[in-house]
């Protein structure tokens, strides 16, 4: 008689821990029972992200690059598992390479995006990019792993904390990723992953007053509604593309701060 495998319970990833949805709900996706997050889980995830933000944003860029690189290592180590949960080996490899690509940007993008500004007066003036804060990401449905990572990685590279709603139909890769993240060096709360009904969760994120930006890559038909709600606190709305890879993707999640100081004896 063959051995009965021990099946995994698929949970949410909030603040570095794996809670069930506070609602106790699950839904079936990819043949598994997956946690179906509620608005209160959204609330908890945003709170965790806000709490994790200062440390992550305040880390040296070099350090953040190393932490991102470590994510690539952890995904590589689980490459086989990931391949089963997405379109295959190729998607996993592209995902890993993308994370490595962004890891290398962490201590460089400021030099590309920032500037020193030659003002007409006795002042030194410079502009630096800073993370906008808590970013809500609606991951695209496809590709389930690369799409999510393509949206989350640039936000993380810039020092933001992220609450991501995984693909509703293909959530397992996202949960696998959460497990990789949990065993990487990413501080708890920097990435929070929710699974569930996107149409139910997205409006709570779009209207949340403590979310600074929303990436509506996976918003499908409800984008206008989300954009309207986002105006309540002048949220930055990023219309991300699933396959993008560029330093300007990082810039989309950055604020620019300009500092003036007199030059005098």
């Amino acid at each position: 008689m063959s051995r009965l495998p021990v099946k995994k319970t698929y949970k949410l990833f909030i603040g570095g821990a794996f809670p069930r949805s506070e609602s106790g709900r699950t839904y079936e996706a990819e043949g598994q029972n997956v946690a179906r997050a509620s608005r209160k889980d959204v609330r908890d995830a945003v709170r965790a992200a806000r709490g994790a933000l200062p440390k992550w944003a305040g880390m040296t860029a070099y350090n953040r690059g190393q932490v991102l690189y470590r994510i690539a290592e952890m995904v590589e180590a689980r490459a086989a598992e990931f391949a089963d949960l997405c379109s295959g080996r190729d998607e996993v490899e592209r995902t890993i390479d993308r994370v490595v690509w962004y890891a290398g940007w962490a201590d460089k993008f400021a030099q590309v995006i920032g500037s020193s500004n030659p003002v007409a007066g006795p002042y030194f003036n410079f502009t630096v990019p800073e993370p906008t804060g808590v970013v809500a990401t609606l991951a695209p449905d496809e590709p389930p792993l690369l799409g999510l990572v393509s949206r989350v990685a640039p936000a993380l590279t810039g020092g933001n904390a992220v609450v991501v709603v995984a693909s509703e139909t293909r959530p397992l890769a996202a949960i696998e990723l959460a497990e990789a993240l949990a065993t990487s060096d990413v501080p708890g709360g920097v990435v929070n992953i929710l699974t569930g009904n996107r149409a139910e969760l997205a409006p709570w994120l779009a209207a949340h007053m403590d979310v600074n930006a929303i990436d509506i890559a996976g918003a499908d038909g409800i984008a206008p509604e989300l954009e309207r709600a986002a105006a309540d606190n002048v949220k930055r709305v990023v219309r991300g593309r699933a396959d993008a890879q560029s330093p300007w993707e990082i810039a989309a999640f950055m604020e620019l701060k300009t500092v003036w100081h007199p030059v005098g004896r």
Binding site: P122, Y123, P262, G264, R265
Partner: peptide, 8 residues
């Protein structure tokens, strides 16, 4: 102390 630029 005195800030030179602002003073000027």
């Amino acid at each position: 102390s005195v800030d030179a630029v602002a003073l000027e």
